[in-house]
């Protein structure tokens, strides 16, 4: 290395040293003169000021911990309650499914069962279309599959509960068996059903229209199924200022013949002699026929009657609308 080179290196080293020295000097100055002493009173004064804050903070912290614990407990309680609710809902849904399955199974059992096994109890509710009881236990409600006529038949059996022996629901049809001993004696062999028989039921529908007077234009409609020999009475009674309440009721059979006369009695006041109309019935009529009119003061009523004959053959129901129910095997056997 040349002398110039040595000199250059020395100068660089010197400069570096002086730079380092300057850095040291700056740091030294900072440490010596830059130190900031705490304000008067020092630590004691500062601590006296800080301590109350720490105490407050500690108390707040404890409260926060307690609140958090309470919150956690509440959260756990909510979770447990939710789980319990979910479980109970699940169980309920499962039970419901099970019950549905049981009902379906029972329904199919009913369909397979013999008619004598199913009984309609005495406290049958006519507002429900059909309730199938078995051994005094409700098995099924079947409102959707019952035809209109059958519903009316069931309503009629409210009046004659003792005549229903059994009922079974088979392939969309209802087989009903009636007690034969409470019915009038069987018709003679060869008698035509169209002429009416002692086994016939008569189904009346009575519509009463107010054509004049009154507050409202309500129409009274009543249906009744009677056994032969029953007289049907339509009663109208004053109920309020200008309203008449009607009722249609079958009476106890007095004659062992099929009635051809519908007595429509109108009783305006209790104790007064009823007056009304007598309508001749044509059992072949399908459309409502005007049976007569009567009036009470300013009010005038028109009574329309339609009738339908329903035959019972060996415990099976046959309506004039052509609804022929299948006879059960045992009944067919007895017929043969």
């Amino acid at each position: 290395m040349t002398d110039k080179g040595n000199e250059g290196r020395d100068s660089l080293e010197n400069r570096g040293e002086s730079s380092l020295q300057q850095e040291d000097a700056i740091d030294e100055v900072l440490r010596e003169y830059g130190v900031i002493d705490p304000p008067e009173g020092g630590f004691e004064a500062f601590w006296a000021r800080l301590r109350p804050h720490l105490e407050v903070d500690r108390i707040r912290d404890q409260e926060t911990v307690q609140n958090l614990r309470r919150l956690r407990l509440a959260w756990i309680g909510t979770c447990v309650a939710s789980v319990a609710i979910l479980i109970s809902l699940g169980l309920w849904a499962k039970a419901l499914r099970k019950e549905n399955t049981a009902l379906k199974s029972a329904s199919s059992n009913v369909a397979r069962s013999t008619p004598g096994e199913i009984h309609l109890p005495g406290d049958y509710d006519p507002t429900v279309d059909l309730i199938i009881f078995r051994h005094d236990k409700v098995l099924a409600y079947e409102p959707a599959v019952i035809a209109r006529d059958l519903r009316i038949f069931l309503g009629a059996f409210e009046c004659f509960p003792s005549q229903l022996q059994s009922m079974a629901f088979l392939d969309g049809h209802v087989d009903m068996a009636l007690r034969s001993h409470e019915l009038p004696s069987a018709p003679p062999a060869g008698e035509s059903q169209s002429r009416g028989s002692q086994e016939d039921f008569l189904y009346f529908q009575v519509n009463v229209f107010r054509t004049r007077g009154g507050v409202s234009q309500r129409t009274f409609t009543a249906r009744v199924l009677t056994v032969p020999g029953t007289s049907v009475t339509l009663e109208g009674r004053i109920a309020g200022k200008a309203d008449v309440k009607f009722s249609l009721s079958p009476q106890t059979p007095v004659r062992a013949v099929c009635p051809t006369v519908l007595d429509l009695a109108y009783v305006p006041f209790p104790g007064e002699q009823p007056y009304g109309v007598r309508a001749g019935l044509d059992l072949r009529m399908n459309q409502p026929a005007c049976a007569g009119t009567f009036s009470s003061g300013e009010e005038e009523y028109v009574v329309y009657v339609s009738a339908r004959r329903v035959g019972v053959i060996a415990g099976n129901i046959v309506s004039s609308a052509g609804m022929v129910r299948k006879a059960t095997a045992s009944q067919r056997a007895s017929e043969s």
Partner: peptide, 15 residues
């Protein structure tokens, strides 16, 4: 959460 213990720490690093 002992404030007395914290006092030592404060004293040490206060400055």
């Amino acid at each position: 959460g002992d404030p007395d213990a914290f006092a030592d720490l404060v004293q040490e690093y206060y400055q």
